[in-house]
């Protein structure tokens, strides 16, 4: 067996072991939500998602609260600054710090964006990778490098984009080529599919159908801002709209009941409002399960 082959089998074990701990509906953890989440009853949330950049190296009260929550909930980590598609070499020290963080908190899945967020330095937001063959090779090679250092398979998220510079491939072909080439998982952001389908005039349902369901590690839903009829901005600052719930419903029917979470970063409403949306995620997930059972009985 080659070295790569050995790594591969390690990753496979990791994902089977880890992802089985992940199910149901979760919430993105924000510092401002810590106190309220700590007081929630068991079962209100099934898991939490943490942005590692905001927590690596943090001590004090927040550090302790995070460690307590990590004892109670399965954690997934959603990175922001890896710049996995970026033009400069990967920040290896950061990736090693990340590995320590993931190991210490027993994080069940790490995801990053199919994007880049740096040039000579960090810009802290997502730029659109040119959809080209060259970029497929580049980003796939870097995902493999990250997986190698983290010693785990990672999930890559389809991002919202407002421009497609130097485009040679369609978005769906680009994503599928990267997933295939890097042999990584997918974090399916249902809201991003919807946002992009409006901004770039394609059919969101066909897009979901064309994704490899078996690679979906977990899913995101979020609210957005409709700037005009033909432009939606992915803000995570509002309620999830009906069209996105419908798309989630469809997605659950097509890909099965995958773990999913609500992302809410701005204009945070009271916790009970957030929990209503988390429960709506559960509703679509369980509706799917009920359909499954009926199919099996039939």
């Amino acid at each position: 067996m080659t070295r790569e082959g050995q790594h591969q089998s390690t990753f496979e074990q990791d994902i089977n072991m880890n992802l089985s701990a992940l199910q149901g509906a979760g919430l993105g953890l924000r510092r401002s939500l810590l106190d309220e989440i700590e007081t929630l009853a068991e079962g209100e949330l099934d898991f939490l998602e943490v942005t590692p950049e905001n927590w690596i190296g943090i001590g004090g009260q927040y550090g302790r609260q995070l460690r307590r929550l990590a004892e109670r909930y399965p954690l997934v980590c959603h990175g922001l600054s890896l710049s996995v598609g970026g033009p400069a070499p990967l920040d290896l020290k950061f990736i090693r710090d990340l590995k320590t963080f993931l190991d210490e908190l027993n994080v069940v899945c790490f995801s990053e964006h199919l994007s880049y967020c740096s040039d000579h330095g960090h810009l802290y937001d997502l730029m659109p990778i040119p959809f080209t063959e060259q970029a497929v090779d580049h980003v796939a090679q870097r995902i493999m490098q990250v997986q190698d250092i983290l010693q785990r398979r990672i999930a890559i998220e389809n991002v919202s984009y407002y421009a497609a510079p130097s485009q040679q491939l369609s978005e769906i072909d680009f994503i599928n080529a990267v997933l295939e080439k890097a042999d990584c998982d997918l974090l399916l952001d249902v809201n991003n599919v919807y946002v992009n389908s409006i901004n770039h005039h394609y059919d969101a349902y066909q897009f979901i159908d064309a994704l490899p369901a078996a690679r979906i590690a977990y899913m995101h839903v979020a609210g957005h801002y409709q700037e005009s009829e033909s432009l939606i901005v992915d803000t995570h600052g509002a309620e999830v709209v009906d069209s996105v719930w419908q798309l989630l419903d469809f997605t659950c029917q097509r890909v099965g009941s995958k773990p999913a979470l609500l992302e809410r970063d701005f204009n945070l409403p009271p916790m009970n409002e957030l929990l209503k949306e988390v429960n709506l995620i559960r509703h679509y997930q369980t509706q799917q399960r009920a359909d499954d059972v009926q199919l099996k009985i039939a």
């Binding site: 033009p87 400069a88 040039d119 810009l123 060259q134 130097s166």
Partner: peptide, 25 residues
């Protein structure tokens, strides 16, 4: 931080740096 210099850049890197430059300035 790592410094990216012409002319060793790939066309992908050039596209990315040009895009980022438009955001920064």
């Amino acid at each position: 931080m790592y410094s990216l210099k012409l002319p060793e850049l790939t066309s992908l890197q050039q596209q990315q740096l040009a895009f980022a430059a438009c955001i920064r300035d």
